[in-house]
């Protein structure tokens, strides 16, 4: 099966391990991952500083490249930006015609058939992981964390992580802060606020006796790893899935020494 996906800029550095694990999973499951040809940056949080048209253009260009298809989006912030742009294009004919005009500069066409945007979490619920679980794997309790952009304002399936991880053999510990905020793109890294937020999230996981926290967003993972105090194992949910399927940690971007 072919899957069109939007890797996003973080795939190249920050979330290299996320993408390694996604690719490892895909090859294990015999999915053909095909990156959106010639995709561009979605503008991250910086588009909030620029006129509305800029952010819409960056998203529209990707939407035009994927028109008519199903587009899998792996980073939550990209997911948010693409969803938001798509809603605006659907509801606001003025922005729609403006974007159509701008895209003409690049010889692209904004077809009325916008792509169906799918988060990685929801996409993976289509797969029954219990069938692929490695016989040697012994699951350990994990808590899950969705963060903001998979929860609001365009909510995805907020049981998706629970579904796939428990199918893969992990007892999933219910938590209450799974859709709270990790501090995201708070512009100051020396702020105690972000430390408090991350500490609180990890506190709950520890309080409820989880042995690890499964996340779905590059920024969440980075924040939790850097500011989570005391440290607590945080991994992409795809890495946990890979371990359950028996994929070697190094293929999943998990450093040797751990």
């Amino acid at each position: 099966m072919k899957v069109l996906y939007y890797p996003g800029c973080s795939s190249e550095h920050l979330a290299r391990d996320f993408y390694l694990s996604i690719e490892a999973l895909a090859s294990f499951l015999a999915l053909e991952l095909e990156p959106l040809p010639d995709w561009n940056c979605c503008g991250a949080r910086e588009i909030e500083e620029a006129p509305e048209g800029v952010g819409l253009f960056l998203a529209s260009r990707n939407l035009a490249l994927a028109s008519g298809k199903e587009l899998l989006v792996t980073c939550s912030l990209c997911f948010h930006n693409l969803k938001r742009a798509q809603n605006i294009l659907r509801e606001n004919p003025i922005w729609r015609s403006r974007m159509a005009e701008v895209l003409k500069d690049e010889g692209l066409e904004l077809s009325p058939d916008l792509p169906r945007i799918l988060s990685l979490t929801e996409f993976l619920t289509r797969i029954d992981f219990s069938r692929f679980r490695s016989p040697h794997f012994r699951g350990f309790p994990v808590a899950v964390y969705y963060g903001c952009f998979l929860s609001r304002p365009y909510p995805t399936d907020l049981q998706a992580l629970e579904k796939v991880l428990s199918a893969a053999g992990y007892p999933v510990i219910p938590t209450t802060l799974k859709t709270h905020c990790c501090g995201g793109h708070l512009p100051r890294t020396d702020s105690p606020v972000i430390k408090n937020l991350c500490r609180r999230l990890l506190f709950e996981a520890r309080q409820k006796n989880a042995s690890g926290l499964a996340v779905a967003c590059p920024v969440c993972k980075l924040n939790l790893e850097i500011y989570g105090d005391p440290p607590f194992p945080v991994r992409y949910f795809t890495q946990y899935l890979g371990l359950a399927l028996g994929i070697s940690p190094s293929w999943l971007g998990i450093p040797e020494e751990e």
């Binding site: 996003g8 800029c9 973080s10 190249e12 550095h13 920050l14 561009n40 940056c41 503008g43 991250a44 949080r45 910086e46 980073c75 912030l77 995201g184 793109h185 708070l186 512009p187 100051r188 890294t189 590059p218 920024v219 980075l222 924040n223």
Partner: peptide, 21 residues
């Protein structure tokens, strides 16, 4: 961020978190 985006069409997202780094 913007200069990279204009030069390459792609950028670094994590810069948003690590503005000073």
């Amino acid at each position: 961020f913007w200069s990279l985006l204009e030069e390459r069409g792609r950028s670094f997202d994590f810069g948003a978190v690590h503005a000073y780094h």
